[in-house]
Design a binder for these strands. Structure first.
Lengths: 231, 231
DNA sequence: CGAAATATTGAATCAACTCAATCAGCGTGG
DNA sequence: CCACGCTGATTGAGTTGATTCAATATTTCG
């Protein structure tokens, strides 16, 4: 019995659609590992040695300048695929935001396996195309939106992505949720400073648009107002 | 004889690697068309009805806000693939910057053909992964770089991508080139205003870093200085 | 040539940043 | 248990880089 049989993302990750012999083969190549909050898994510009599926937890993808400025260029949730297949180096670092569990493959093994399994490559292609769409929408935010618009867009995005996507029917966006980000990390997602993020949060709170019961918790009181602010 | 036999991007586009019967089949599905400078080919949020290979010319991929702000999220050169396969809607508009020639497929036809030809899907996957890398690098620019850094990075990027990639050996980055962008379009790539772009260009000229013989022409006089400025 | 579009330059404003101080939450150890 | 220190977040004051608004210059094209 392979560990995949009990994998909680078995039917959502790129493994979905593989038949039992294929899963068995893939299973022998992969191994599970945990990554503690704050711990890196992949380094920017390093040789691309491994790829992985996220089983549990949240990780950030970042790029940095020589002088230490950071931009979060992506966020990986359970069932997401991380790492750079079919390429020599990884363009982004991957660091866990929360304690996480991932299913890791050597890139070489994965590349070989993928080339032999078109269905898997197709899943990966669909995922990559979606991620590119999402990334391009974020470029609009970074290049053209004001700080209030950025914050509103961010909160709505979080509300969608942190929606309780368990097995319940039509969950819809979450009204209240816990951010996997510190204020600094929110700033690194939005291309702002921590002070600006803090001020915008305070503004939204005093305007009664959101409630902030704790540092990481958000409750959306007026979604319509947020959508209006998002621009 | 199919038009592909004489196609100048035959060996660089995703068609590369297909054998003759496959090319013949693909060829019957595609048709060539020209797109004049300024003419749109695909509209944001519209149903994704067509995909295409760029044969000649340059096109921009853009997203816009309701109130008309625009962000250029990608630029397509000859041999690049444009459009959104395997998805209902297109996340970006595609508009020609110069007169262009493209090889157009109905998305449905292309999707079906691609699913039957893993080698083609693999090529598309590699391209999409590279484009995602490039896009993420651009997010760093949009979120964290200053106007002078943005302009310097932009000019170096143009110098690389507009390098004479004919058949000559090891061309290297272009020392002088013609921008396919107006000042407004440069602003839309970098998330700046046209005035800021103009001021930065003037600054680089008066500092002797570049020469600007005409509105669209750039000659890099001091590449080292540009690299330093790029941050 | 003249008109229209595009680009540059200048002056003034403002949004977001920097720098600095205070505050809140939290775990530790006396 | 609570004082202490540490980290992260908030708030304030002042600055600045990029914008906006406005005027002028240049190029393009009918």
């Amino acid at each position: 019995m392979s560990p995949c049989d009990t994998c909680v993302v078995r039917n959502r990750a790129i493994c979905a659609g593989l038949d039992n012999p294929e899963i068995a083969a893939l299973s022998t190549m992969g191994r599970r590992r945990t990554v503690s909050a704050g711990e890196p898994l992949i380094w920017e510009d390093d040789d691309s040695l491994l790829v992985a599926n996220v089983i549990e937890g949240v990780l950030k993808l970042t790029t940095s300048t020589a002088d230490g400025r950071e931009q979060i260029v992506g966020v990986a949730y359970p069932s997401d695929f991380i790492g750079r297949p079919f390429g020599q180096t990884s363009a982004a670092s991957v660091v866990a935001l929360t304690d996480a569990r991932v299913c890791v493959f050597s890139r070489n093994d994965f590349d070989r396996f993928a080339r032999e399994h078109p269905e898997l490559e197709h899943k990966l292609l669909e995922r990559t195309l979606s991620e590119l769409d999402r990334t391009r929408a974020w470029m609009m935010l970074l290049g053209r939106k004001s700080a209030p618009e950025k914050i509103a867009t961010f909160l709505l995005d979080m509300s969608d992505r942190l929606a309780d996507n368990g097995c319940g029917p039509h969950a819809g966006p979450a009204r209240q949720f816990t951010l996997p980000f510190s204020r600094q990390q929110v700033a690194d997602v939005l291309g702002l400073t921590i002070e600006t993020v803090s001020r915008q949060f305070t503004k939204l709170k005093s305007d009664g648009v959101v409630a902030l019961p704790s540092r990481r918790d958000v409750e959306i009181l007026d979604r319509g107002a947020l959508q209006l602010l998002a621009g």
